[in-house]
């Protein structure tokens, strides 16, 4: 039963909520209890823009259960405007035509579903930033 875990991750998956250290200003995604840079425990919640550049990626051709219908698809590491790197699926593109440095933005998409009768998991995915 992964339901409680999915539910706990809602703020980061649905709204890209991150933790910003009130002392040194470093941003962690997902948020943490203790700042890894200065050890402070005062964190405020900030929403990431979801916009950035593709820093690295791989193309999944043999996909795990729940993702087989989407193959081949890209999983990218994206350098966000806020400075940190975030990993996520890159969709609405031909994975073989992706290039490091491509401008990406995020959309709300279906991530996975637990079979035909289980819960549906939603969250952000990256798409090419085409002003759509």
């Amino acid at each position: 039963m992964k339901v409680p875990r999915h539910w706990r991750e809602t703020p980061q998956r649905y709204r890209m909520e991150a933790g910003k250290c009130s002392k040194c200003g470093s941003i962690q995604f997902p948020g943490r209890v203790i700042c890894p840079d200065c050890g402070a425990t005062e964190m405020e919640t900030v929403k990431l823009s979801g916009k950035g550049e593709l820093a690295s990626y791989t193309v999944i051709r043999v996909a795990p259960t729940g993702f087989t219908d989407l193959a081949p698809y890209a999983v990218g590491v994206v350098q966000l405007e806020e400075g940190m790197r975030v990993m996520g699926q890159v969709v609405d593109c031909d994975p073989d035509n992706l290039k490091i440095g491509d401008r990406l933005t995020t959309q709300f998409r279906r991530i996975n579903e637990e079979g035909k009768t289980g819960m549906i998991l939603y969250g952000f995915k990256f798409v090419p930033d085409l002003g759509l």
Binding site: L70, Q107, F108, R110, I111
Partner: peptide, 16 residues
């Protein structure tokens, strides 16, 4: 719709 789009995702992206 793409395979990962449904009524909920379309709604969220339009509402944003």
């Amino acid at each position: 719709p793409a395979p990962d789009e449904d009524c909920a995702t379309l709604s969220v992206n339009a509402a944003r």
